[in-house]
């Protein structure tokens, strides 16, 4: 087995490589793709929260988008009303979303499968309506306009001119890499093993003396913290508002996690790239075929729905299976 130090070393290395790769891509690609990469770095955190919650601990949430909204609004209010720096605001957004997740998790620990899915779906629809309920502070349907500001002087001296899109990406990279590092460690830690035990057999886990309810709540809190961070980064592209965190966002995160591979961290990355770039890819294909706008608007949703079902029925382990199977084979020969 791996020693603790080797896990730390390995995950540090993977997270550093991930950050470096994004940085290099961000320097070489154009403004549009920089925005898309920033979305990848941001939504990767959101998809990882689903991987953690559903993949590792076996709980389903259709309300991750609502938790993202909690993080987004928290960060926006801290920046706009209290003048916090975005970095501090993002970190506090994690804490606030985690607290929201604690309450949700306390309710969720009593619920199983379909009950949990339905309740979180209601939450996903109910939370954005709060924006209208407290219109003066939360900005109603329009939302609050916030952005990541300008890059600091020392960085522009070091890296040359940094565009707005590039700066958005550069803000997202450290958070994304830190999350990756954290989740890599978490999945190999005691908590990760406990969650998987509970997921696979709740009765057996509790007979082994594990506190099932408490560990389920902990999983919910961790996943919510990540979702809150993703939500803050996602909102700070311009607007934190109900239209930024629709129910479709929650479903897109779930789709990405499943298509990439619900139980794998590399799968989460593959899934995120898939959900971010699928509309572009389909746009490229349809533009050569001259289909009407009516078709091309709905085609990405159709394709991702079909691929979701195909994944579940034919290849439930997701696109990442190939890579994990290769890894397993290597371990066996050792």
């Amino acid at each position: 087995m791996f020693s603790a130090r080797r896990i730390w070393l390995k995950s540090t290395l993977i997270a550093a490589l991930f950050a470096l790769g994004l940085l290099i891509l961000g320097k070489t690609l154009g403004a549009y793709n920089q925005t898309q990469l920033a979305s990848v770095a941001t939504l990767f955190i959101g998809v990882l929260s689903v991987t953690l919650l559903t993949g590792a601990s076996g709980q389903i949430s259709l309300g991750q988008g609502a938790i993202m909204a909690v993080g987004g609004y928290a960060a926006a209010l801290l920046v706009l009303n209290l003048g916090f720096s975005i970095w501090l605001a993002f970190i506090l957004a994690v804490v606030i979303a985690a607290i929201a997740g604690l309450f949700l998790g306390l309710a969720a620990a009593r619920l199983t499968g379909p009950y949990l899915a339905g309740t979180t779906l209601v939450i996903a629809l109910a939370i954005p309506t709060l924006a209208n309920r407290f219109e003066s502070t939360l900005g109603g349907d329009v939302g609050l306009s916030v952005d990541v500001g300008n890059p600091p002087m020392w960085l522009t001296k070091f890296l040359g001119d940094i565009g707005i899109e590039q700066w958005q990406l550069f803000v997202a990279i450290p958070f994304s890499a830190l999350t990756l590092f954290g989740v890599l460690n978490l999945s190999r830690s005691r908590s990760g093993r406990v969650w998987r035990a509970i997921r696979d057999n709740e009765v057996a886990a509790s007979l082994h003396g594990l506190n099932v309810a408490r560990n389920k709540v902990i999983a919910f809190v961790c996943a919510s913290g990540l979702a809150g961070l993703a939500g803050a980064l996602y909102g700070f592209r311009g607007i934190v508002g109900p239209s930024v965190y629709p129910i479709d966002l929650s479903l897109a995160l779930l789709t990405g996690a499943v298509i990439g591979g619900l139980r794998s961290i590399s799968g989460a990355l593959i899934g995120t790239i898939f959900i971010v770039f699928l509309p572009d890819l389909i746009g490229k294909i349809t533009s050569t075929f001259k289909v009407s706008e009516q078709v091309s608007n709905y085609l990405p949703a159709l394709v991702s729905g079909v691929l979701l079902l195909l994944t579940i029925v034919i290849n439930p382990a997701g696109l990442a299976t190939a890579s994990t199977q290769l890894l397993k084979r290597r371990h066996r020969t050792k």
Binding site: D200, Y298, A301, V306
Partner: peptide, 24 residues
């Protein structure tokens, strides 16, 4: 846990497909 969770995700996939088809 997954035997109750995965069909839920599958039904959401069906929902997405039906909405997209209605749109098209």
């Amino acid at each position: 846990s997954m035997r109750t969770t995965i069909p839920v995700i599958a039904s959401l996939g069906v929902l997405g497909i039906l909405k997209a088809l209605a749109g098209i």
